[in-house]
């Protein structure tokens, strides 16, 4: 028995070292289909690398915004600045509460906002969040919070990618990486916003679907609320506008509104401002710049009112 336990222990150590070394070598294989559970691509979606690098230099802002692409494509920090509200947009692609929580814990150490806006969208609350985790792991410096995020996700692809990025972070291999600010139709704006070349949406039929909330994501969402309230930071939940045909495809929007209202001050802009699917949207999910301005001006009114009351 003793021999067996000792041998198992030794082999486990050996296998861990072997796994890590092989993983580091395997990454250099050119063909992605030979490494399906490893995704290492710096500077891929939504300029996360540049945004997070900039976030490290930010100290105090009035408003910090978190959320998915609805956030970084929908909350234009230039409009906030024009209205004398300093802001930073920490939105990342498909960001789900699991990633929001990790980013909050990581960046609230250095950024001290007066108000946090968490953009909420039913789609991400039912997502596994793997895509977003990979995005953050690849584009940020990884610490223990990354491991916590990956453990919550329990997906082998995020585990492998994290191991690989720990190694890169440890040797500072990404120091010289510079991400393009303009990618196709997207331009990264200092402050975290991404402006897309103006486009118009042709509405299509979308199959009706119920809003389903993933238990893991809801737990992480509750942790976010706790984390923010515990730090005595004001919190507003915002359901940014999506196209009418997408919004009306959800069969239980009232359930979602009711759920969000339980947690904090909540604004559903889909029922607060009138937008036109073709004129104001770039696709079913995202506003174009015309829509962003309408939405942001309305939101800023609310924020200013809040600030003046306080």
């Amino acid at each position: 028995m003793k021999k067996f336990i000792i041998e198992i222990f030794k082999f486990t150590l050996f296998a861990i070292i072997f796994y890590i070394i092989t993983l580091l070598i395997w990454e250099s294989i050119k063909y992605p289909f030979l490494k399906p559970n490893l995704y290492c691509n710096k500077g891929s979606y939504g300029n996360t690398f540049t945004r997070l690098k900039e976030a490290k230099k930010i100290n105090t802002v009035d408003v910090l915004i978190l959320g998915s692409s609805h956030a970084y494509r929908g909350f234009d920090t230039r409009i906030f600045n024009k209205n004398n509200i300093s802001s930073f947009n920490l939105g990342t692609s498909s960001q789900t509460p699991i990633q929001t929580l990790a980013l909050l814990k990581r960046y609230l150490k250095t950024i001290h906002p007066k108000l946090i806006i968490v953009e909420v969208y039913p789609g991400v609350l039912n997502s596994d969040g793997v895509e977003s985790s990979l995005d953050i792991i690849n584009n940020d410096e990884n610490d223990f919070l990354s491991l916590e995020m990956v453990l919550k996700q329990n997906n082998i692809k995020t585990f492998n990618t994290l191991i690989f990025n720990y190694y890169r972070n440890f040797l500072n291999l990404d120091n010289s990486f510079v991400e393009k600010r303009i990618k196709n139709d997207d331009t990264y704006i200092s402050g975290g916003y991404i402006e897309k070349k103006i486009g118009y949406y042709k509405p299509k039929n979308i199959t009706k679907q119920p809003i389903i909330i993933d238990k893991k994501q809801l737990d992480a969402f509750e942790d976010i609320i706790y984390e923010i309230k515990n730090r005595n930071i004001e919190l507003v939940l915002v359901y940014a506008p999506i196209s009418k045909n997408l919004y009306s495809s959800y069969t239980n929007n009232h359930y979602f509104d009711g759920l969000m209202m339980k947690y904090s001050e909540y604004y559903n802009f889909n029922s607060m401002i009138k937008l036109n699917d073709t004129i104001d949207f770039d696709d079913s999910n995202h506003l174009n710049q015309i829509g962003v301005e309408k939405f942001n001006n309305k939101l800023i009114e609310i924020i200013k009112n809040r600030f003046s009351k306080n």
């Binding site: 082999f11 050996f14 296998a15 072997f18 796994y19 092989t22 993983l23 395997w26 490494k35 399906p36 559970n37 490893l38 793997v130 997906n155 082998i156 692809k157 585990f159 492998n160």
Partner: peptide, 16 residues
């Protein structure tokens, strides 16, 4: 190393 390679294959190719 052979057994560890099998473990690595599980990690690299298993369904997610």
């Amino acid at each position: 190393s052979f057994y560890s390679f099998l473990i690595f294959c599980i990690g690299m190719f298993m369904a997610t």
